[in-house]
Amino acid sequence: MTFRISQRGKEYLETAQTLLRTARTMTDSAIASQIKALADDYERRAEKASHADAAKAFARSAAS
Rank of each mutant, 00 (worst) to 15 (best):
M1A: 09
M1C: 15
M1P: 10
F3L: 09
F3A: 13
F3E: 12
R4A: 15
R4C: 12
R4H: 13
R4G: 13
R4K: 15
I5C: 13
I5P: 04
I5N: 01
S6H: 05
S6T: 08
Q7C: 14
Q7T: 06
Q7E: 07
R8T: 09
G9W: 00
G9Q: 00
G9E: 02
G9C: 04
K10Q: 15
E11N: 11
E11C: 10
L13N: 03
L13T: 06
L13E: 02
E14W: 14
E14C: 12
E14D: 15
E14H: 10
T15R: 12
T15D: 05
A16M: 06
A16V: 05
Q17Y: 09
T18R: 08
T18H: 08
L19T: 01
L19H: 00
L20W: 05
L20S: 04
R21E: 08
R21Q: 05
T22H: 01
T22W: 01
T22D: 01
A23Y: 01
A23H: 02
R24Q: 05
R24Y: 05
R24K: 14
T25S: 07
M26D: 05
M26W: 04
M26T: 05
M26A: 04
M26H: 10
T27K: 06
D28I: 00
D28G: 00
D28R: 00
S29I: 10
S29P: 15
S29A: 11
A30S: 08
A30L: 06
I31M: 05
A32V: 03
A32G: 05
S33G: 07
Q34P: 02
Q34L: 02
K36T: 00
K36I: 00
K36Q: 03
K36A: 01
A37H: 03
A37P: 01
A37F: 01
A37G: 03
L38D: 07
L38K: 03
L38R: 04
L38Q: 07
A39Q: 01
A39S: 12
A39F: 02
D41R: 13
D41L: 12
D41N: 08
E43D: 15
R44D: 12
R44L: 11
R44P: 09
R44A: 15
R45D: 14
R45V: 09
R45G: 10
A46F: 02
A46H: 02
A46M: 04
A46Y: 01
A46R: 00
E47L: 10
E47W: 11
E47A: 14
K48Q: 09
K48N: 14
K48S: 11
K48H: 14
K48W: 13
A49W: 03
A49K: 03
A49L: 08
A49Y: 03
S50H: 01
S50E: 03
A52E: 14
D53N: 03
A54M: 10
A55K: 10
K56P: 04
F58G: 08
F58V: 12
A59V: 10
A59C: 05
A59Y: 04
A59R: 04
R60E: 15
R60C: 10
S61D: 07
A62V: 09
A63D: 11
A63L: 13
S64V: 15
